[in-house]
Every structure is written in C-alpha cells, then in structure tokens.
C-alpha cells in the first residue's frame, strides 16, 4: 500500500475519472459534489454532497469512489455525506459546463428570478443549433436535475440541466 501523499492533489486527479452515471461526460469533481478530500493519517476522508435529496446516482458514485481509490492502493477512512451548504449548480465547473453542452445537454443558465410563482422559464440556448428560440416542455425531465426543452428552430428536443441555487 502506498503512503498517502501529504497533498491530496493525486486523489483529486483520480476522482476526475469518476463520472456521474446519468451524465457520463461530467466527472464528480466537475459536478461539484466532492466537497473535500482530507488526509486522516490512516486513510483519506472524502466529503460528498448530493445534488438532489433523492438522487439515485449517489450510491453508485460512492461505490465508484471506493473502487478507484482501492485500485490505486489509497486507503479510504470514510466517505462522509453532508447536506449543508446545499449543492448548487454554481459549483459545476467551466469544463463541466462545456462538456455538458457538447454532449447535448444545455448547461444551467444564470436564473436570477427566485420567485416561487409565475417566473418565466429561463431562455435556454439549444445545445445543438445554438438558437435561443426554444421553449420549456416540462420543468421535470429524464432525471431529477434536468428539465425538458425543445428548440423551435431545429425542432430537436433536449435536456436542460436546470439551475438550482
């Protein structure tokens, strides 16, 4: 077993290889759900936070983190799940946003309106033809984190990774 390095840089690099099982172009680091990696002496402690309370991918992600650390002979002390501060789409990295768009999922737009009622849906550019002439079909999409949109120009339906603040 290799000694844990003083800095945790290598572990962050390894975690880049763990992908969100529902959005395979997004690493858990780019998604912003890895909150901390700390050397505890006897192993590393990885702190994660869920995107949505009921996100079914969290369990798989934990398993994947354990697997990759084991494969690289890095002892894990534990994986801690924290709820606060609550995850926000602001934590998705620039690289993550770019990957999402190339994959055909529109990245979260900066929605400033936080009103509960009657807010106009965000203007979301089509990830395929880049037109801004799109419409929301449903606030709820194929997974908890996505809304369902359609482009009025190229007519393609697409997923929008909805803004959560």
């Amino acid at each position: 077993m290799v000694e844990i390095k003083k800095n945790t840089e290598k572990i962050w690099e390894l975690l880049e290889e763990v992908k969100d099982p529902e959005v395979p172009v997004l690493s858990v680091v780019d998604l912003g759900i890895i909150r901390d990696v700390e050397n505890q002496g006897n192993g590393v402690e990885v702190t994660i936070t869920p995107t949505y309370s009921g996100c079914p991918a969290m369990h798989t992600i934990e398993q994947e983190i354990k697997k990759i650390l084991k494969e690289n002979n890095i002892p894990l002390s534990k994986i801690v799940t924290v709820l606060s501060p609550a995850w926000t789409t602001d934590w998705i990295s620039e690289k993550g946003r770019k990957n999402l768009e190339e994959y055909g999922i529109a990245p979260p737009q900066n929605e400033v309106d936080k009103s509960v009622l009657f807010a106009n849906p965000a203007i979301v550019p089509c990830p395929l033809c880049k037109s801004k002439n799109t419409r929301m079909i449903s606030q709820f999409g194929s997974t908890a984190c996505k809304a369902h949109y359609q482009c009025n120009d190229c007519l393609e339906p697409f997923d929008y990774f909805k803004c959560l603040k």
Binding site: V82, L83, S84, P85, V116, L164
Partner: peptide, 23 residues
C-alpha cells in the same frame, strides 16, 4: 438543530419547483 436546518435547506430548493408545478 443543525441537521434539521441542513435538511430543510436542501429540501427547500426542491420544494420550490414543486410549488411552481402544482400552482
């Protein structure tokens, strides 16, 4: 209670979408 406050903070973001939908 910090745990209840944390669950509430997380849940509130989700419930905001629920209220919009049912309204």
């Amino acid at each position: 209670d910090s745990q209840l406050a944390a669950i509430a903070e997380k849940s509130l973001k989700e419930v905001t979408y629920h209220v919009k939908h049912s309204s």
